[in-house]
Structure formats: structure tokens, C-alpha cells
Design a binder for these strands. Structure first.
Lengths: 367, 367
DNA sequence: CTTCCAACTGAATCCGTTA
DNA sequence: TTAACGGATTCAGTTGGAA
């Protein structure tokens, strides 16, 4: 898949920097449709500032008022609406967003994503291998957080590196539950007192999987709640550009220091497994043109049940059917579709050989 | 925790019956504050576009029933508001609710639970050990569903059998992620044609854990979307009373037949399904994601004859070969297969260390 | 009576390019 | 914009018949 780059817009973007300020204001100052991926880990313990109003503008008074809960949610929802709208504006049409949260806030984020027209692709469970136990024994150990992956709109062409994720999972399709330890040990950033520099630093392994799986090298990854910059650090390692936005100076400083030490992996290591879909298309007719198969030569179905003849124009003809290798295969099998390349075989030296072997020969010549 | 019983109310309840009709109307006809637990598995509002075929061309039997069709999010939200309000009214002050859903609907349910004053206690992930794969390779395998457990209000004294769940989990605190297979085999109810009687029958193991953990014997468990009655069947086995509400006559009949065969304390059948523990599979890619090995780092074969580089997706690249640790090892040795875990080593402090050591570290964390 | 293999199945928002 | 068409894509498990 080739990406259309728009140099003017790209150059206007402040790449690989940490921008100071309120993320909504900063995002609104960036050009529309300019970012490939947004990763957002928003706070959910918002302090209520100033007067709080219900949607009908009546004021919410007492804190322990029955409406307090509603009021808090209304406030949080407004915040969520605003930053998601700002994020959506700067996303490229084929861009995507990841958000992460716990049950305190993730349901409201998910609903608002849908309300704004984002199209949810998966929800992903980060299953912590070493969570904090529930000390009081009053609930289940809260051993996971939830991520939501969504495209900008229904039908958009999002990036998904299927084969790379399959490789990361030793040849089996990547699932929606990811087992990853929480961030501690040497990876956990400390301040000058030896205390953790940020309360919710995310593990690099989580970002690694997400960035490898849903971006390409050279993409722009923006994080509106940058914190200590895990998303930026992993993006940089993986040869992506990042944009961080962070309000707190202390976090910006920690993140800046961290990023200065990061080195990009070499190009060869960043190439990942690709799917067959990205290989060049070879028309079946080329096999005939090149004399690899002769007009009139017989092809046999893989299961041995059918026999057809090759025609000079690269179509096949059977007893009651003619058409492309795919159409004839589908018709004979009564199937909705058929991959003719793997369905048909020809005879060489008495052995049955799949015609896909000939396609591979042509592709090898094309390199 | 002792429960105050109110015999008058209890006697008014139609216990251990399946009530016909719309669940909102039926719930509104029941006495206020009379039910201990509600389990709800409402329609998910899947929005499926066309047909889906497996790679072998067989057609996926989709959930396309009329009861899962809603015109818009607004319609679905109204439906959710109404049934949740009806459910909340009939709940005892110290009662609780469980709802289950997927990313299509669970965020809207979770937000509405909070809006109505329910207090979320945990969200629980049902991790399916055998989910349906993603056949087109366009997204992650949707391998889980989400449950939300909530009390009627903040501060309510909900039931939580901490020790019972701990016992179910081999003496370790029960976590918020539960690994349970989907319902198939003998447990899956069939109609007279041998087809599945209900498209979304839930496994009894899921309900077993939930009812053991959050109710006491003698409690009343109500299910407004009864379907084939899994909640009722497990409640009956475990000595709880149930109330089922179901609109479709066909489902009521199947459920009634099922329930007539259930005997209380028929425990042994359930005990059979205890886990057979084997060593968890660790994909090599996890070592890369977690930074135990870096993309670009060199691995050396045990015999010292070969050197390769690690890529970001957990594959290896050598002079003329790339693939998994096993594939590359086999290729270089000209062997039909190769255990990459014992074949490859990396250098640490000048010494050669087998990569299997890193796998052992991860496994130790997973216990 | 086993063992083996082919066929089948499960809450799924599941294609991309060219004419 | 729509229609046609090339061709890529699956994991864990159960069932039932054959060997």
C-alpha cells in the first residue's frame, strides 16, 4: 500500500518534539488531517474546576447532592468530547486512534468514540501478568486495562500489519487479549527522590505491539497525554515520528531526557513480515504468453475431481464452463469464490505441480 | 454478611419460572426491591454488512436474528436505558447486576449503568480459549467478551464470596480475567433439526463462577434475556432461585425442557471441567516486545556456525533466509525441523546464553 | 474397541483494485 | 460511483465415519 505524502502539511508539523500546553488547544493549532496514529491515555481522576453546570445550564450545588455523580460524569464527558473531537480533526482520513482506560472511564470513552463517528475495530485487553492484588478482598483483583482501536470512520482504510503481529505471536493470529507485565524495574522512570516519576507509566512492550501492528515506518504518532513519553520512545525506536503534548513541565523534562537516549533500530530490523497481498499481481495469461503452459494443455483440480484445458487467451475451458482460473474453479466447486492459483495443477514428468509454482518463478524474476 | 429476608415480597415473586413477554413490562410488574442478582445478556447490536466465508469457503452462520436489529445508536441507547431502569427498580438495596457484551454495545451499557447510579465494582474479561478466528486477517481475533459487575448504588453492601473464588482459583485471588471455553459440544443445546437452539448460548462455567462468587444459596437470580436459560440452570444447580424472562416462545420451550432435567447440587458434572495445566506457550516475539532482545541484535547458533539478526516482529533474518526462530534454524541446518529455543543463543557480558533462558523468565512471571 | 482423518463450527461490525 | 473480478484468508475443538 503506497502512502500519499503531503510534504507541505508534514513540514508544518512539529515532529519529534514535546509540545507544552493543554492538549485540546495544541491539537487545534495543528493542521487538519495530518497525523497517522493517535495514542491516548487520558486521566480519569479529573479535578473539578470552577462551577459545574448540567447540560441545561442549571448549576450543580452540593457535592453530596444526588446529582453529584451525574455532574461529575457530565464534566468528564464534556472533556472527553472535546479532546476526541480535536484528535479526530487532525487525523488523516485513513488514520486510527488507540485509547486506553479502566472501568472508571473506558465505557464513556468508547461510547463517545462511537458518537463521534469513529469506527471501533477491536477492543483489546491488556492482561497484566503482575497486577496489584486487591488487599481488602472485597472485589476481584483488577488485573487488566482496556484499549480501544478505532478508525476515523466506517469504511476507512486503516493500517493493520497482520503478518507482523502473527509473527510476534509465533505464527498464530494475534488475539484481542495481550499478556504483558506492568512497567517496573529498570524501565520504570524515577524522579530525583527515587519515587516513580509518573503514576501510570505504560510498559514499552504494550506500545511496541500496537505501533508495529497499526503503523508503518515513517508514520506520525501523536500522543495528547504524553506523560513520560512511552509512546514517543517506542515510536522513535521503531522509526516512526512522534508528537507529544504534555501540560506538566515535570513530565516533559523526564520525557525529554528519556527520548534523548533512545536510538532508532537499524532499517533491516524494522522491516516486518508482509502478506501475500502486497506482492505484485501476475495475470495467469502471462504463463501462457511465456510458454510456461501451452494452449490446449490440461489442468487438474487439486482434489483430482476436475479437468480443464488452457486457452490461448489465458482462460480455461471445461465441459460446460469457461472463464478465468478463479471463475472456473469456483463454478466447479459450487463455491462463492476460489483461488485458482492454488486450486489448479499441471503435469510435469508425471508429477502434479500447482500452477502457483510458475507464478512464484515469475515473481522471483521481477525482483 | 447476613441477609435480611422479606418473606412477603419473596412470596409475591414467581420463583423458578420462565415468564413470557417483554422484559421491561414484566420487570415493571414485579415488586420493587425484591431480587438479589440480575444477570443480563442483552442483544449486542452487531452491525454485520455482508456474508462472511471461511477460507475453506464455508459460510459463517451469523447472528442476523431480528431481535438484534436496532435502527441506530439512539434506539439502542433508549432500549438500554429502559431495561436498566426497570432492572434497577426490582433490585434489593444490596443487590447487584452483571451485564455481558462486546465492543459493539458494552461501552454504551457501561456508561448508562453509571448514569443511572449503579456503582461498578469490576469489569471482567471472559477470555475465550477457543474463539472464532478472524478469517480475512483484517483485525485482531475477537477473543473475549466483557462483563460488568455493579452494585445498585455507591456504598451498598454487595455480596462477594472472596474465599470461594480464591478456592476456585487454586488458592490465589480471583482476577478480573477469566479463561473459559465457548459453549459447544454436549452442553450446546440443539433444536429438532440438530442446529443450535440459540445463537449465543453462554457456557455454564461462566455463570457458575459468577453465581458462586456474588450470591448466596437461597438468593433470587433474575435474567431478563433468558434465552436457553443458562443462568437459571446454574442457579438451580447451586441452590439459588431463578426468574427467567423471555419473549420468544421457542427459546422458552428449550429452556423449560433443560431446567426440568437439572438437579440441585449435581456438582460432579461441573467438577469434571477442572483445568489441565500445561506450560504456557511463549511466543518469541514477546522477548522483543519486552526489550529482552532488541531489534537488530545478533543471535548465534548453538554450534557457532550461524549468525542472524532479530527483527521488530520477532522474526529472524540471515544472509539468505528469514522467518521464525524455528524456521530459520531448520533451514540453516538443512533439517526438517528445529527447536529454535534451544538452538539460538545471544551474548550477555561476553557469554553465550540460550534464548530459552529468557522464556523461562517470562514463564516464571506468568504463574 | 481404538485410532485416525475429514468435515464441520463458533456473538464477526472481516477486500482491494480496476474498468 | 458502481460493478466486476482477482484472489487472500483460520484456531481450537467436536463429531462421525472409516480403517
Amino acid at each position: 500500500m503506497t502512502k500519499i505524502k503531503t510534504p507541505v502539511v508534514r513540514n508544518a508539523l512539529p515532529l519529534n518534539e514535546i509540545l507544552a500546553g493543554d492538549c485540546i488547544e495544541v491539537m487545534n493549532s495543528l493542521p487538519e488531517g495530518s497525523v497517522d496514529l493517535i495514542f491516548a491515555d487520558p486521566p480519569y481522576n479529573l479535578q473539578l474546576r470552577g462551577d459545574l453546570h448540567r447540560p441545561d445550564n442549571s448549576k450543580v450545588d452540593a457535592v453530596d447532592d444526588a446529582w453529584d455523580q451525574f455532574g461529575s460524569f457530565a464534566h468528564y464527558d464534556q472533556f472527553t468530547r472535546d479532546w476526541l473531537a480535536a484528535a479526530r480533526r487532525i487525523l488523516k482520513p485513513n488514520g486510527a486512534i488507540w485509547v486506553i482506560g479502566s472501568y472508571h472511564n473506558v465505557f464513556r470513552m468508547g461510547a463517545e468514540l462511537q458518537n463521534q463517528g469513529f469506527w471501533i475495530l477491536n477492543d483489546v485487553v491488556w492482561r497484566k501478568s503482575n497486577p496489584m492484588p486487591n488487599f481488602r478482598g472485597k472485589r476481584l483483583t483488577n488485573a487488566h486495562e482496556t484499549l480501544i482501536w478505532a478508525s476515523k470512520a466506517e469504511g476507512a482504510k486503516y493500517t493493520f500489519n497482520y503478518e507482523a503481529l502473527k509473527s510476534l505471536n509465533e505464527g498464530i493470529q494475534m488475539r484481542s487479549d495481550w499478556v504483558i507485565p506492568i512497567c517496573n524495574g529498570g524501565e520504570r522512570l524515577k524522579d530525583e527522590n527515587g519515587d516513580k516519576a509518573h503514576p501510570t507509566q505504560k510498559p514499552e512492550a504494550l506500545l511496541h505491539r500496537l505501533i508495529v501492528g497499526t503503523t508503518n515506518p515513517g508514520d506520525v504518532v501523536l500522543d495528547p497525554f504524553f506523560g513520560t513519553g512511552t509512546s514517543g520512545a517506542v515510536a522513535k525506536m521503531l522509526g516512526r515520528d512522534f508528537i507529544g503534548i504534555e501540560r506538566e513541565e515535570a513530565y516533559r523534562e523526564v520525557a525529554q531526557k528519556r527520548l534523548s537516549k533512545i536510538r532508532k533500530f537499524d532499517r533491516e530490523a524494522l522491516e516486518v513480515s508482509t502478506s501475500k497481498r502486497s506482492e505484485p499481481r501476475v495475470p495467469f495469461g502471462q504463463l501462457v504468453e511465456r510458454g510456461m503452459l501451452r494452449p490446449g494443455e490440461e489442468l487438474f483440480s487439486m482434489n483430482g475431481r476436475h479437468k480443464v484445458k488452457v486457452r490461448a487467451d489465458g482462460t480455461l475451458i471445461g465441459d460446460d464452463v469457461k472463464g478465468s482460473i478463479h471463475q472456473v474453479g469456483a463454478h466447479l466447486e459450487g463455491a462463492p469464490s476460489c483461488n485458482g492459483w492454488t486450486y489448479w495443477t499441471f503435469k510435469r514428468d508425471g508429477k502434479q505441480v500447482p500452477i502457483d509454482l510458475l507464478r512464484q518463478q515469475i515473481r522471483a524474476e521481477m525482483t
